[in-house]
Simulated assay, not measured.
Amino acid sequence: MVRFGTGGIDIQGVNAGTDKAGRCLGYLVKYLTKELDACYEPDTDAQRAHLDRLADALRWEPCSESCANWLLYGIQPAEPSKGLVPGACKGKAHRPANLGYRGRRCLVSRKWSGRNLTEHRAERREHVMKVLGAVGARPELDTSDDPDGTRYQWVPIPRDDPNQPDRTQLLLHSIAQQRRWKQQYQEARHAAEVSATDQTAA
């Protein structure tokens, strides 16, 4: 590592795999990419349109734990406050000049989960089912269980299908269903906490 300043050049060795190496790497990458838009100037309308599409896409991506865009995925942001609106986050990552980057430019390996979104959903579902099962509760389903995936066939409804259900009714039904599931999950958690408290008191 080389430092420049009024005191001259300060050269220090950095060993790979150490905490110091990780800090140095994060520092270098952060400032090398601090102004990402300054290193590239679009020359054509197609290039400018591409950057506009990228900026618009990043507008809806979560930039931090407290970003309002998590609401689009059914996830409550950290430390929520009144007036959270998806797409209106003021985080730096949503600015075209940052191109989706904010703060630390490198995510350290100890924070990697190693799982994709499908695996996260499966893990969350397993947790919910475990909580419900602990108090003998079962989620209310519109259809019977189909563990083998052979009882039902799910296909998109064509736009010109005359028998397709009303979209407003589908939306209201989905909202009501989610509220029922959430209430049932909260009741199961409360019952489990009460049971654990009673056992501790005994």
Rank of each mutant, 00 (worst) to 15 (best):
173 H>P: 02
175 I>H: 08
67 C>T: 10
38 A>F: 03
172 L>Y: 01
117 L>A: 13
59 R>N: 11
170 L>P: 02
12 Q>E: 14
166 D>W: 02
151 R>S: 09
129 M>I: 05
200 T>H: 13
183 Q>Y: 05
147 P>Q: 04
149 G>C: 01
28 L>W: 10
96 P>H: 04
23 R>Y: 03
94 H>V: 07
51 L>A: 07
123 E>R: 15
186 Q>F: 06
71 L>M: 12
173 H>W: 09
85 V>G: 07
86 P>Y: 01
114 G>W: 00
101 Y>W: 06
150 T>I: 08
49 A>Y: 03
83 G>S: 06
87 G>W: 00
154 W>C: 07
86 P>I: 07
139 P>G: 07
157 I>S: 06
109 S>N: 10
45 D>V: 06
117 L>S: 08
133 G>Q: 11
105 R>Q: 10
192 A>V: 03
70 W>V: 09
163 N>G: 02
185 Y>H: 13
106 C>L: 13
110 R>K: 12
129 M>P: 02
114 G>Y: 00
63 C>A: 12
124 R>I: 11
186 Q>T: 07
195 S>F: 04
29 V>T: 08
129 M>D: 14
192 A>F: 04
37 D>S: 15
94 H>Q: 09
12 Q>F: 06
141 L>K: 13
31 Y>A: 00
68 A>C: 03
89 C>Q: 08
161 D>T: 01
196 A>I: 03
128 V>C: 12
140 E>D: 14
6 T>G: 15
23 R>T: 08
2 V>C: 03
126 E>H: 12
5 G>Y: 01
66 S>D: 13
150 T>N: 11
87 G>R: 01
66 S>F: 02
40 Y>M: 05
133 G>E: 12
144 S>I: 07
172 L>K: 10
79 E>R: 11
39 C>G: 07
184 Q>G: 13
3 R>K: 09
179 R>P: 00
58 L>M: 15
17 G>M: 03
97 A>T: 07
95 R>K: 13
96 P>M: 00
103 G>F: 02
7 G>K: 08
99 L>G: 03
102 R>S: 15
158 P>F: 05
138 R>Y: 01
94 H>Y: 06
83 G>V: 00
145 D>Y: 08
3 R>M: 07
88 A>C: 03
68 A>D: 05
194 V>C: 14
169 Q>R: 11
44 T>S: 15
42 P>Y: 00
197 T>H: 08
5 G>H: 05
172 L>H: 04
40 Y>L: 10
161 D>F: 06
192 A>P: 06
190 H>N: 09
74 G>H: 05
140 E>T: 13
78 A>E: 15
97 A>N: 07
6 T>R: 14
75 I>A: 09
24 C>D: 03
98 N>C: 08
131 V>G: 05
34 K>M: 05
132 L>M: 05
86 P>M: 00
195 S>Y: 05
153 Q>W: 09
195 S>H: 10
201 A>F: 13
61 E>I: 08
100 G>W: 06
180 R>P: 04
44 T>V: 03
174 S>G: 08
8 G>Y: 04
195 S>V: 02
30 K>A: 07
70 W>Q: 13
36 L>W: 00
111 K>I: 00
